[in-house]
Computed example of a mutant assay.
Amino acid sequence: MAVINLQKGQKIDLTKGNPGLAKIMVGLGWDEVAKTKSGGFLGNLLGSKPAEIDCDASALLLDANDKLTSKDRLVYFGNLQSVDKSVKHSGDNLTGGGEGDDEQIHVDLSRVPGEVHKIVFVVNIYDCVRRRQDFGHIANAFIRVVNSSNEQELCRFNLTEDYSGKTSLIVAEVYRHSGEWKFAAIGEATRDASLSEIIRRYQ
Score class of each variant (00 low, 15 high):
residue 15 T to L: 09
residue 16 K to L: 14
residue 17 G to D: 14
residue 17 G to P: 09
residue 17 G to S: 06
residue 18 N to M: 04
residue 19 P to L: 04
residue 20 G to L: 02
residue 20 G to R: 01
residue 20 G to T: 01
residue 21 L to G: 05
residue 21 L to D: 00
residue 21 L to R: 05
residue 21 L to W: 00
residue 22 A to E: 15
residue 23 K to R: 08
residue 24 I to R: 08
residue 24 I to T: 11
residue 25 M to T: 06
residue 25 M to I: 08
residue 25 M to Y: 03
residue 25 M to S: 05
residue 26 V to A: 04
residue 26 V to Q: 00
residue 26 V to M: 10
residue 27 G to R: 05
residue 28 L to E: 11
residue 28 L to M: 15
residue 28 L to C: 14
residue 28 L to A: 11
residue 30 W to L: 02
residue 31 D to T: 12
residue 32 E to Y: 07
residue 33 V to P: 06
residue 33 V to K: 13
residue 35 K to F: 06
residue 35 K to E: 12
residue 35 K to V: 15
residue 36 T to A: 14
residue 36 T to E: 12
residue 38 S to D: 13
residue 39 G to P: 13
residue 40 G to M: 07
residue 40 G to N: 08
residue 41 F to Q: 03
residue 41 F to N: 08
residue 41 F to E: 08
residue 42 L to K: 05
residue 42 L to H: 00
residue 42 L to W: 06
residue 43 G to C: 10
residue 43 G to Q: 12
residue 43 G to R: 07
residue 43 G to D: 13
residue 45 L to F: 14
residue 45 L to C: 06
residue 45 L to K: 03
residue 48 S to R: 15
residue 48 S to V: 15
residue 48 S to T: 14
residue 49 K to F: 07
residue 50 P to Y: 11
residue 51 A to N: 12
residue 51 A to I: 01
residue 52 E to G: 04
residue 52 E to I: 07
residue 52 E to M: 07
residue 53 I to M: 13
residue 54 D to Q: 01
residue 54 D to H: 08
residue 54 D to Y: 08
residue 57 A to Y: 05
residue 58 S to R: 07
residue 58 S to V: 09
residue 59 A to G: 02
residue 59 A to C: 14
